[in-house]
Amino acid sequence: SKICLVCGDEASGCHYGVVTCGSCKVFFKRAVEGQHNYLCAGRNDCIIDKIRRKNCPACRLQKCLQAGMNLGARKS
C-alpha cells in the first residue's frame, strides 16, 4: 500500500496532486481555504509523522506544500 508523503500514514489516494492520507488531505484543504496563519513554536523543523502530525500545523502545512500539494490540482 502507498504511504502519505506528508505524515507517512497509509495513503488513501492522490489528493491535490500528491499521494496523501485522508487526514492530511482534509487538513490541507482547511488550512488553505481558511487562510490560517499558523506559526511554529519551534524552528520550523518539527517532525511530522502519523503520531505527531497534529502537534504543529505550521510545519505540517509547510510539508504539504513542499510535497507539491496544490488546491487547484486536478484529480488524477
Rank of each mutant, 00 (worst) to 15 (best):
G42K: 10
G22I: 03
G17M: 09
I47S: 13
I3G: 04
C59F: 01
L39W: 06
V6Q: 01
G72E: 11
G22D: 13
C4S: 01
K54W: 04
V26C: 06
H15C: 04
S23T: 04
N55D: 14
K2E: 08
C7G: 00
N37L: 08
L61T: 02
R43A: 10
P57V: 05
E10N: 10
D9K: 03
L5M: 05
A67R: 09
N37K: 14
G8T: 08
R43K: 14
C59T: 01
I47T: 14
S12K: 05
Q62R: 10
H36N: 13
C14I: 11
S76N: 08
N44H: 10
G34M: 06
F28S: 02
S12M: 15
V32N: 08
R43M: 13
G68V: 02
K25D: 07
T20F: 02
I48A: 08
D49R: 03
A11N: 14
A11I: 02
D45R: 11
A41Q: 08
D9R: 04
D49S: 10
A11C: 05
T20C: 09
G22K: 09
S76M: 07
L65S: 12
K2F: 03
H36C: 10
R74S: 13
T20L: 04
M69S: 02
G13V: 07
E10T: 11
K25F: 06
D45A: 08
C21P: 00
I3W: 03
R52F: 05
H15N: 07
K75D: 09
L61K: 14
R74I: 10
L5S: 08
G42R: 09
G17Q: 08
Q35E: 15
D49P: 02
A41K: 05
R53D: 11
C59H: 02
L65C: 08
Q66H: 10
I3H: 06
K63P: 01
S23Y: 10
C24H: 01
I51R: 12
I47H: 12
E10D: 12
N44P: 02
R30P: 15
Y38H: 09
G34E: 12
H36A: 14
K63W: 04
L39N: 13
R52A: 11
H15W: 14
N70H: 11
A31S: 12
K75G: 11
S12F: 04
K75H: 15
L61H: 03
G22T: 06
C56Y: 02
V32T: 15
V18T: 02
D45N: 10
D45H: 05
A41N: 08
S76C: 05
G17C: 10
K54V: 08
G72S: 13
D9Y: 04
S23N: 15
A58K: 10
